[in-house]
């Protein structure tokens, strides 16, 4: 349960951080809140030779309306969710325990991309735009579907950092629902669902069911996989009920 040795850098600016990422390439790994990466490192499932700690990069700490810097913590967003879609505020208390939310960040969660995590599901549901920066190539902005390639696998190149996540303005009159099932409040979800209804258009996402959060028109499309925490049939059954529940929350006929 001890991490392999690594070199540690704590850059003071985004330019310095991008330099370090470019310099170390595949050997380097960005450290955000560490609430997913540190467990992987102590279990030696990840053994990066170089950690680039983003804690002191000022450009990543800001929130400007619906544009959230990658290093903004879940706790900060929980304290002040003003201007964000209300489904985000509903999901935040489910992101780990409060001690985890004090450290965990939006960017870290998305770059880690655990299929059971809430941020990837929210990004897909709300059609968030993710901003990626590197030293040697131009900035690019990807939609959630382009960014999420597979479990724990994103479109981020080795020298790139996710710098910000932008959600669309939440329209007045928009409706939404969010629900998940976990063993303890704050544990990883065994299944989850969220929906929005905007201008009569219904959008439903299930998560913690399979390899990635999944957009579904109908619960029969849910592609569930099983593991030691829950068999596939259980996940599919629970997610199906959660879809009904979130649609009812949103005032829809499921």
């Amino acid at each position: 349960m001890k991490a392999a040795p690594f070199a540690y850098h704590r850059p003071r600016s985004l330019a310095e951080a991008l330099d370090l990422m470019a310099e170390h390439g595949e050997e380097g790994k960005a450290l955000a809140g560490g609430q997913s990466l540190v467990p992987l490192m102590v279990l030696r499932l990840a053994q990066p030779a170089v950690l680039v700690d983003l804690a002191d990069v000022p450009e990543l700490q800001h929130r400007d309306g619906t544009r959230i810097g990658a290093m903004v913590t879940n706790a900060a967003l929980e304290r002040d969710g003003s201007g964000l879609p209300p489904v985000v505020a509903a999901a935040l208390p489910h992101i780990g325990h409060f001690q985890i939310r004090n450290r965990g960040t939006i960017g870290g969660s998305l770059a880690h991309l655990d299929p059971a995590a809430e941020w990837p599901a929210l990004a897909l549901l709300l059609e968030a735009r993710l901003t990626l920066r590197s030293r040697d190539r131009s900035e690019r902005t990807l939609g959630a579907e382009e960014f999420m390639l597979g479990p724990l696998t994103t479109a981020l190149a080795a020298d790139e950092l996710l710098t910000a996540v932008t959600f669309p303005e939440w329209p007045s009159g928009g409706r939404w629902g969010f629900a998940e099932v976990a063993r303890r409040p704050g544990d990883f979800a065994l299944a989850g669902a969220a929906c929005t209804v905007v201008g009569g258009r219904r959008r439903v996402v299930v998560f913690a069911t399979g390899a990635l959060p999944q957009r579904v028109e109908d619960p029969s499309e849910i592609e569930a996989t099983g593991d030691l925490h829950a068999p596939a049939a259980y996940r599919a059954a629970v997610a199906t009920r959660l879809v009904e529940r979130v649609l009812i929350q949103a005032g829809e006929q499921p």
């Binding site: 540690y8 560490g34 540190v38 467990p39 102590v42 700690d53 001690q99």
Partner: peptide, 19 residues
């Protein structure tokens, strides 16, 4: 392993000492 880091409760097993 919970400790207070700048007054906030955090898991000290999920932070490297250098952080």
């Amino acid at each position: 392993c919970t400790v207070l880091l700048d007054g906030e409760a955090v898991r000290s097993c999920l932070i490297f000492a250098v952080q």
